[in-house]
Design a protein around this nucleic acid. Sequence first.
DNA 1: GAACAACCATTGACGTCAACAACGATTGGT
DNA 2: ACCAATCGTTGTTGACGTCAATGGTTGTTC
Lengths: 162, 162
Amino acid sequence: MTPQGPPTAQARPVDADEPWMRGLHADTGYLLYRLGLRSGQLFNAALQESGLRLRHYALLRYLATVEGAPQRELSVRLGYDPSAIVGLVDDLERLRLVERRPAPADRRRRIVVLAEAGRAYLRDTDEASHRVTDELTGPLTAEERDTLHALLLRVAEQRDEG
Amino acid sequence: MTPQGPPTAQARPVDADEPWMRGLHADTGYLLYRLGLRSGQLFNAALQESGLRLRHYALLRYLATVEGAPQRELSVRLGYDPSAIVGLVDDLERLRLVERRPAPADRRRRIVVLAEAGRAYLRDTDEASHRVTDELTGPLTAEERDTLHALLLRVAEQRDEG
DNA sequence: GAACAACCATTGACGTCAACAACGATTGGT
DNA sequence: ACCAATCGTTGTTGACGTCAATGGTTGTTC
């Protein structure tokens, strides 16, 4: 398909009708990738003052929905490697936001439980979380934000099994 | 704000009415973050066979829209650090997909130009790129994909200055 | 009930990546 | 002719994902 031009690079004008020429933001996938990066940066910046990062926040958030989970479950549900969970729980336990408990039936497992301070932390950072989302979806109306959220949720639940 | 309960962690049931209890995927920002990660993984997996990664692909994609750009411009437009651009252009130049040229007016600048092989590469990987987006937006209808893309575009252009 | 495979949390190593400081070469302004 | 700013480049640091390996524990199978 390459024309008879020389094999070396040429700064000739591009053909804007070609399908591979639709610009950077033509792919929804790439768009999601870039916005995900920006969203993570904003989140981490907002959480920076408390010394935690987005990963810790996600873990706390999940713990608030299940009241206690072994680290293996955290690894599967959050999509982080088991070795990563260790460090995250270490950090959170050091801050008394979380507590490791022995599992009654299986002495291999260690149940991670949200501590009272962890609940308070979630309460306090909820506002910051809202700020990030607002800043991110700034150019959208309230209805558009809802539809965007609903669509993203459908896409996210594709593999997350609810 | 903490109730009179003991200061240690308690596995008591959570109050589902509290605003900080809306589950993991309640925030659009966090949702974007997670989907961005997945999208990047899918993209990189699709591009893996060609030895390049998503960053290279984005750079090629941008070069196809501007017919030559100094590395500084690539850094600003793609959002990557100038030092990152160096490595990316190195890789692409090694594969003859891109060419560095001296800028006629400014001997500091080096204009990066898409080579003919780079154009062919974009043509060939366009299909793979479509596959990734299709897999990502699988549970959505065609109309929903369009609206999702439009909404993401609005959000993305917030700071990207078009 | 003894051997064996599977599982859980943990540690360590390796490669990737973003962010930052610093440098040589070059440019433009005064 | 000086001085600040710019461009590409190198190097460093810290966060992060992935994988292999280990100690302790469980369940299974003969």
